[in-house]
């Protein structure tokens, strides 16, 4: 081990303890018997039971999932298009404005995005509900998708597309048959990112949802304002578990496939 001193070991231990302890406490106390969240009174899963019977949470979760699936799917299509235009589109009228609009939402405070969209929806007389939240989430998450996809496109060997054209593909076929299959992993992670952003979003949803569509973060926020509650702990634990399983699985899968690729390449190199 080169230069891996006690100092480094300490900063890693303390750092990761800082990152994970709060969540760990949350998880442990979701199994607490008592309603008093800071006093341990024995193991129980009752809060999971009462959470599953809480219709308002279930409704909110259902709304959130609908919004997340719809917005992340549209955002992936639009974001991939935007990325392709920015990386491969060449020059066109208003390209600077376009790239500005793609990158600005990334740094735009959520309160401003939310406020401006709300004013727009009111301005054109659009009733707020699931539809408006989907529009809002699509708009900001397409920009994140576009960043993920365009960073993949930048490193994409342009001669692959040229080869497809050279072999008789129309530009659209070249994209469908060559570019898309190759950048698919980036597109999928763009979708996942958009999905997560939509699941997570409180501020923009609060502005654009209106009273008819309460998403899970809005529901959680209004509950949390009252203070800590064991049901919320249980809900958090479920969400943390889903994310952890998802992210760890994804990283194992991608690790495996890159290892397999490496093995193949080494085998091919030896074969000659």
């Amino acid at each position: 081990m080169r230069r891996f001193s006690w100092f480094n070991a300490t900063s890693l231990t303390v750092g990761f303890a800082f990152l994970y302890l709060p969540m760990l406490i949350l998880i442990i106390y979701s199994f607490n018997e008592s309603r008093l969240v800071t006093v341990w009174a024995g193991f129980s899963t009752q809060w999971y039971g009462s959470l599953l019977q809480n219709q308002s949470f279930l409704d909110a979760a259902w709304v959130t999932i609908q919004v997340a699936i719809a917005s992340s799917t549209i955002a992936t299509v639009l974001g991939t298009m935007a990325a392709y235009v920015l990386v491969r589109g060449g020059r066109f009228m208003g390209r600077t404005v376009f790239s500005g609009m793609v990158y600005a939402p990334l740094v735009m405070p959520e309160v401003i995005t939310g406020l401006s969209l709300l004013l727009l929806f009111i301005g054109i007389g659009l009733d707020r509900g699931i539809f408006t939240v989907v529009l809002a989430h699509t708009t900001f998450s397409m920009c994140f998708v576009s960043v993920v996809v365009s960073s993949r496109l930048v490193s994409f060997d342009k001669s692959l597309e040229e080869a497809a054209l050279d072999l008789g593909c129309s530009p659209f076929d070249a994209f469908r048959l060559v570019t898309l299959p190759i950048i698919a992993p980036a597109v999928i992670s763009g979708w996942l990112l958009a999905f997560t952003l939509s699941l997570d979003d409180l501020v923009i949803a609060s502005f654009t949802a209106g009273p008819s569509a309460t998403t899970l973060p809005i529901r959680i926020f209004s509950a949390v304002r009252m203070g800590v509650s064991p049901e919320i702990n249980a809900l958090s634990t479920i969400m943390i578990a889903i994310v952890t399983v998802g992210v760890v699985t994804a990283s194992i899968v991608s690790k495996r496939s890159s290892l397999a690729q490496q093995r193949d390449e080494q085998a091919a190199a030896r074969a000659t």
Binding site: D157, L160, E162, A163, A164, P181, I182
Partner: peptide, 13 residues
């Protein structure tokens, strides 16, 4: 006209 690319541009998939 067909072209053989310097990078070969073989479709990896």
């Amino acid at each position: 006209v067909n072209m053989m690319f310097q990078s070969y541009a073989l479709f990896p998939h």
